[in-house]
Design a protein around this nucleic acid. Sequence first.
DNA 1: AGTATCTACAACCATTTGGTTGTAGATTAC
DNA 2: GTAATCTACAACCAAATGGTTGTAGATACT
Lengths: 109, 109
Amino acid sequence: MVVDTRADENIDRIFRALADSTRRDIVRRTLASTYSVSELAHEYDMSFAAVQKHVAVLEAADLVRKFPNGRERIVKGNPTTIRKAQELLAQFEHLWRDRIDRLDAFLAE
Amino acid sequence: MVVDTRADENIDRIFRALADSTRRDIVRRTLASTYSVSELAHEYDMSFAAVQKHVAVLEAADLVRKFPNGRERIVKGNPTTIRKAQELLAQFEHLWRDRIDRLDAFLAE
DNA sequence: AGTATCTACAACCATTTGGTTGTAGATTAC
DNA sequence: GTAATCTACAACCAAATGGTTGTAGATACT
């Protein structure tokens, strides 16, 4: 069985992007407030280029978007993609509940 | 600023584990039904050892657990960890909502 | 105009990841 | 008892990841 589709690759990117505490912190910050790339870079113990790469990973996953503002790029967190991931996990939980419901129905016989 | 803690590493593992469509499929299956490792292996176009490794990654993230049953290991999806991830994403969304609420309050002045 | 700042991007490096094959230990089936 | 099945794990390999430094293009400041 082959499992991978284009849609799956997008999901891969989302979870992969979230699997790093620096990137999760960037998402939190840019959801709660406004940051340029260099403002973000000041927050972490790593090079500007490293932070830039993290932002690029998040952007590829559509977890943040960049908007030009003069020489700066304003990074904004994208709540829609967060919700998408959340809904996928909710489906997972649903599978479990359905199973329990089936079990309950069986035991009720 | 240093961002990583022990707790963060666990979160890393969860999202990292979910960032692969084969592993997401294993989670879905083992939440909805019962599979041994070899039964899972039959479902995918890869070696038994590869599937075994995927299960190990999921187990390290506590997304599945293994229970010995004779020579088999029964793999069970763990809804608790799914929920944990879901709640974390819900917090992210909350940051966004708070921001919008603050904006609304400001505009209402 | 000249300088400083912000960003983009390439090249490089060590480590991790996702796959493989092969070997070996337990348990079950005949 | 022997053979088949299920699992574990090591060794290996190519590709991706997460960091670095260095160079260069735009924009803003004085």
